[in-house]
Amino acid sequence: MLVLLPPSETKADGGRGGPLDLAALSFPELNPARAKLADALAELAGDVPASIAALGLTERQAGEVARNAQVWTSATMPALRRYTGVLYDALDVKSFTKAGLEKAHRRLAVTSSLFGVVSATDPIPAYRLSGGNSLPSVGTIRGHWKPILEPVLQQVEGLVVDLRSGTYSAFAKLRPDAVTVRVVTENARGERVTVSHFNKAYKGRLARALAETRAEPSTVDQLVKVIAKAGMTVERTGDHALELVTEG
């Protein structure tokens, strides 16, 4: 089973690993595209105003540009520890048991504007690049990744659970049998509506449950059983579509 997570705008500082080494990352067929983006990002960082404009930042966020300037030289850390924010707070990788962490490393991967997709343990630096950005020397990030990333992800074997957000889903279509999960709640009229505020938190909880389970689900029905056993309300709404029903 592979669970595809969205990235986060925020990243943890520092790291104990050496500088970025593309050869140390999973999905090596993506490395030429990764190198092109990293070079473009570092080059753009030499012009702070241009970086702020291209990345959609404010003047107060100029420090993010400094991160990009050091993308090839700064320290790295595993992807699951690099990404922060609501989803990753709910995932809470630091509290995993050793056995749970080993499973998380095998089962979780993160979609990335800079790296396409990275496995949980891939050592990456801090950087700032969003899925909706466009770089002067590359064009749109989505356009850069779609023809390269799509065939790679469609070759992933086993059950794939897609927790990506809309922006990152546009990077690549998955196989038709990939399972999508929609987080919903019921309003006062009993109608199910998409959750926005707590969407990331619930996806983080779901990712944790899927990472820690002793089961090895290979079908949608088995996946539903794992989620229900974790105490979450889940319903199948299509052959490969689930709704995670939250409390209002």
Rank of each mutant, 00 (worst) to 15 (best):
R192N: 13
T73W: 12
L153P: 05
S137W: 09
R164A: 06
V161A: 11
S134M: 01
H105A: 15
L149M: 09
V110G: 04
H144P: 03
H144V: 03
K103S: 14
G131D: 06
S74V: 03
K173A: 14
S134G: 05
Y88E: 02
G85Y: 03
A120Q: 02
L80K: 05
S95I: 02
R107N: 06
T73S: 15
S137G: 10
V93H: 03
E102L: 12
Q70C: 07
Y127E: 09
Q155M: 11
T97C: 05
V156K: 08
E150F: 00
R128C: 02
G85S: 08
W72D: 06
R67M: 06
A188G: 05
V161Q: 10
G139K: 08
T84V: 13
W145G: 05
R192L: 14
V117E: 01
G131P: 06
M77G: 00
V195G: 13
P151K: 03
I148K: 14
R81F: 15
T180L: 08
S113A: 15
T140D: 08
Y83V: 03
G158Y: 07
R192C: 10
S112C: 08
D89R: 15
V179C: 05
R182P: 07
I124E: 00
W72R: 12
G139T: 08
G132K: 13
L153G: 09
V110L: 11
V181D: 02
V193I: 14
R82K: 12
V193N: 07
S119L: 13
A79Y: 04
G100C: 08
S119F: 06
R106D: 14
G132P: 07
A75Y: 00
W72T: 01
K146V: 07
T121W: 04
K146P: 00
G143L: 04
W145Y: 12
V110I: 15
S113Q: 06
Y83R: 00
V152E: 10
F171Q: 04
L80H: 11
P151M: 03
A126W: 03
N133C: 13
T76C: 04
V86G: 03
V184Y: 01
L87R: 00
H144A: 03
G85F: 04
K146M: 00
P123E: 09
S134E: 04
T111G: 14
H144W: 07
P123I: 10
A109L: 12
D89L: 10
S95L: 09
V93C: 05
A104Q: 09
R82F: 01
S95Y: 07
R192D: 10
E186P: 08
H105T: 14
S134T: 11
G85A: 08
R142P: 05
T76K: 01
